[in-house]
Design a binder for these strands. Structure first.
Length: 225
DNA sequence: GACCAGGCACATC
DNA sequence: GATGTGCATGGT
């Protein structure tokens, strides 16, 4: 990626991206066979290991519940909870999945294609208004299900970049997000890879100390003078 | 057995 | 507005 913001104190964000991309390669996010599966995965992975989400997704597929939002909406809450049990918080998440599918049924006749036509700003507001869809889940859906250039901030983003001295850990979500969106090209593919690469990095590094020996970011000064 | 994982809503102060 | 708590499974 070309550096498009040389005068920014955060221009190192581009350097970090390039370093991670060349080190790890493309991550191929988000895993999923359909737009609906991506949305369901985004809700199921809340505070949960992805391996557990995969088990739940398999159950949903076997039941045909991922065929369409209408199919899932027709399932009884208890049945839905039973299917997604491996993903944890199954009662809460069953309610959240139903909140989304009923929202879609009521406002968009259950059609994701209709939702996909909504402008990004309004779409974000509508998704955030659904109980159980917070900023991270919302932005994951916008980026990976609808291909909108929206940067996803998660606990890994905060941990990695605060450990490397870029910003303090407890900035508000939108402030952290703005650091990235204002200093990177507004490119859906870059945002998608960047978030996935941060997750990839965080799973191996930055857990206990600022920089481990094999950290691909070692030697990069995040805060330019 | 403790800790962690691709959060969020709600109660309380 | 800030902080604490409940929600729960499965891997390490």
């Amino acid at each position: 990626m070309r550096n498009t913001s040389n005068r920014s104190p955060y221009r190192a964000l581009t350097k970090v991206y390039n370093k991670l991309y060349s080190f790890y390669g493309p991550q191929g996010w988000w895993p999923g066979d359909s737009r609906f599966e991506v949305i369901v995965g985004a809700i199921l992975t809340q505070n949960t290991a992805w391996s557990n989400v995969e088990k739940a997704v398999r159950n949903l597929k076997a039941k045909g519940a991922l065929a369409s939002p209408v199919k899932m909406n027709a399932l009884r809450r208890g049945e839905l909870a039973r299917l997604i049990r491996p993903s944890g918080y199954y009662n809460v998440k069953a309610a959240r999945l139903h909140n989304f599918t009923s929202f879609l049924a009521e406002r968009y006749s259950g059609r994701l294609g209709a939702l996909a036509k909504v402008p990004t700003r309004r779409l974000r507001d509508e998704l955030l208004a659904i109980n159980g869809i917070g900023p991270e889940t919302c932005d994951s859906i916008l980026l990976y299900a609808f291909g909108r250039p929206v940067f996803v901030v998660d606990a890994y983003t905060r941990r990695v970049f605060s450990r490397h001295g870029l910003f303090i850990h407890d900035l508000p979500y939108e402030s952290v997000q703005a650091l990235f969106t204002e200093n990177l090209p507004s490119d859906e593919k870059v945002f998608g890879e960047y978030h996935a690469l941060i997750v990839r990095l965080a799973k191996g590094c930055c857990k206990t100390k600022p920089q481990c020996e094999k950290c691909p970011l070692s030697g990069i000064k995040l805060l330019a003078k």
